[in-house]
Each structure stands twice: as structure tokens, then as C-alpha cells.
Design a protein around this nucleic acid. Sequence first.
DNA 1: CCACGAGA
DNA 2: TCTCGTGGG
Length: 333
Amino acid sequence: MGVALRDIIADYKTPVTWEALSGIAAIDANNALYQFLTIIRQPDGTPLMDRQGRVTSHLSGILFRIANFMEKGIKPVFVFDGKPTELKQATIDERRKLRDTAGIKWKEAVERGDEAEAYKQARSSTRVDATIIATSKELLGLMGIPFVQAPGEGEAQASYMVVKGDARYVVSQDYDTLLFGAPMLVRNLTVSGKRKIRGRQITVSPERIVLADTLAGLKLTREQLIEIGILVGTDFNPGVEGVGAKTGLKIVQKGEFAAKLAEKQPDFDPSPVMDMFLHPPVTDDYSLAAGHPDAEGIRKMLCDGYDFSPERVDKAMEGFTVKAGQKTLESWF
DNA sequence: CCACGAGA
DNA sequence: TCTCGTGGG
């Protein structure tokens, strides 16, 4: 997922406290939902479901995470993906294939009682489908949390909103946002600080990546960072085999981006990909006005509709209904 | 992922 | 008070 720039970005990540993050956060909604759906599962891979078998992992994730955000003075704005560009088609097809295969392997692993494998395959079979998107928007609406419909990539729209000053930073796990020009990216914005990697639990904390500092440190222009992305591979192009972030950085620093592509992929024209990152479709047609949380509506949806425990929902709402109510009196712009 | 209770 | 394990839906 996303562009594999971690190895060259690592030096420019700085730990950040929750207090330093108050303000409007543009959340890469697809990324957040994907995280919820992959991670909020039982050990055998089964997601949270209501009695009808409808998946509820994402609703649980949204409710509790937003409650935490609001308590810490973070005002989230969810930015949803619009229509994918044709450049992304190969990636979309490939991901679907991987998901389908994983779905089959998941079932097989469950049948032979291989729990670890089942969990792994279940995660790989995760899809953020239309129902997930619609139910997420329904809950956000009830919570009074604004959301924006991007014309194209949500990451591009979220980045644009930070550039405009409508939001302070983008929240995503993907480095693509930096290629889209997000001045600040925040990763690992979770309260628990725990993440399971290959069965082991490690501690992660929120980290901030400032684009200008990263570019200055690497002595690159944003265009050059995109060039590295193109060499490594993005959602919009396959990349050059055998070139990772560090090799890509060397190639670009030596000014050999065009030569390397001409040698390895003579039929590939990188300019549409470059253009996609520099001038993606974005919109100014959005409102960041927060609504009042509809406590009764939230209870009706989650407890009556999806079998959530009223005690837990009320407890979560305590945190944000009061605070959110106060905040709405102020300007959200 | 997050909340919560058990145990140290 | 903190860490760890488990259930949540």
C-alpha cells in the first residue's frame, strides 16, 4: 500500500505529543477505515459483527477514536476517496486479485484450524466496500463530524486542504500524502500505542513528518521526491524492479531519473504520474462546519441497529458530546 | 483499533 | 499505578 519511501523518510520523523496536535486534522478516511477493518478482529480473523452478520469493526473504530480525538482537542475532518484515476486501474485489479485469493485461503485456514494463518489471510482479504463507506458516513453525520468527498484521491484532497490552511495536517499511514504535497503528515495517531507486527506487539507513538524539513534534509525538490516515488513504484505506476527508496534517492540525486527510466522502462512516460501528484483533481466545494452530535441518533444506529452495548456507547459519547457541543459554538474554520 | 478488568 | 489479556459486535 502506498509508496515505499520509509527508508529515506525515517530520519525526518519526529515524535509528537497529542497536545501538539490540537486543531483540525484531515483524516485519510479510506486509510483509517482500512486500518480499522484489518485490525479490529478476533484471533481467527473474524471481524466484529452484529447478530445479522454485518461487519461493525469500522463503526467501533470511528466511535472510540473520534471520542479520543475530541477529548484531546483534535477536530477531525474525514476525507473520502472519489473516482479513482485510470492510472490506478492496474493497482486496483491487482489488489482485488490478492483479496480474493486471501479470502479463499482464509476459509481454508479456518477449516483446518490454523488460527495464525486465518488471521493473516483475513486481514489481506479486507475491502473497504460501499456499505462500509455509507455506514461510516452515516455515523460521522450523527456525530456531527464533517466529511469531505474528494473528486479523486482522498489523500490529494486532504493534502490540498492542509496547503490551503483549512486543516493543520493529514492523518494517514501512507507516504503518498507527501508526494501530494501535504506540508505535514501525522502517522500512528492512535491512543493505545500498541501494534501487532508478525504476532509480536510493539509500541508505536504518533509521529510527525514535515515535508519542507524532509525535502531540505534530503536536498530534494518535491518533484524529485515524486521521481523517487516513481522509481520505487506508486499506486499509479509499477516502479523499476530492484529499486528501493535508497537506490531511488541516489539515482535522483545524481540526476539520472530520466536515464534510468529510459533504460529500464523505455515505453513508460512518467509525466502523467508526475502530473497526478502535482495537479490532482481536488475541490473547494466543502464545508468544515461541525454539527451537533445526535446522541439519540447514535444510540439508535449503533445499539438498536448494530447491537452495540448502550453502556459502552454512552461512555464514549460522554467524552465528545459535551466538548463537541462547546466547540460548535466556536468557528471551525 | 479501543475499553476494561485482573493481577502484580 | 501500570502492564497484560481478552472481549467487543
